[in-house]
Design a protein around this nucleic acid. Sequence first.
DNA 1: AAACTAAGAAAGTCTTAGCGG
DNA 2: CCGCTAAGACTTTCTTAGTTT
Lengths: 105, 105
Amino acid sequence: MSRQSEPSSIFSKRLRQARQDAGLSQKDLGILAGLDPFVASTRINRYEQDVHAPDQATAKRLAKALGVPLAYLYADNERLARMIRAFSALDATEQDRLLQAIEHA
Amino acid sequence: MSRQSEPSSIFSKRLRQARQDAGLSQKDLGILAGLDPFVASTRINRYEQDVHAPDQATAKRLAKALGVPLAYLYADNERLARMIRAFSALDATEQDRLLQAIEHA
DNA sequence: AAACTAAGAAAGTCTTAGCGG
DNA sequence: CCGCTAAGACTTTCTTAGTTT
């Protein structure tokens, strides 16, 4: 991961965006996700800067702490990102109804 | 990553599922994704068994080779997985129409 | 307080060289 | 051909200890 002058990864950008939307500091997000308070700030910072990438278990805990589906953190275009968040806010019945509609379009 | 008797990660399961749906061998998928042919089979195998996890750049190339959005490989429930695939098959106009409908539900 | 960084310690992945179905 | 695996080489992340805004 992480070459010098590359654009930030999708994950990095979505993570920062979602954290700021949630009004959390880097440290607070890390703690919420179950990281040791002494390392929380450093680790979240490195993820957002795309210097390091978390393993899948950590990514899952971050998504949970942020109240977004894990898949949202990997959505590589804005429409898909919006769709994932909106869809996850629906209840099961509405999700099923929507799937029927889309899959038979 | 990877403890002995844990269930496979979301990524592992979706990767295998998508590869089999595409009718590819582990080796062929790896080659399609740009891996060195000499290591392709081993690496895809390790990803599917959740022994190792690829970096984000590799995950992105795998998704592309499989014809699914990167986010699909991280969808942690079946409804969301189906939604991501169906949505990504729509053209931009239809995606926008759908977003309007969902976000104002 | 919040965001950020360097560097050694620690933990991970990758390549090579295979086995068995 | 296909799926799978061990182990040393190699590469990455993590913790500590800070600086900067």
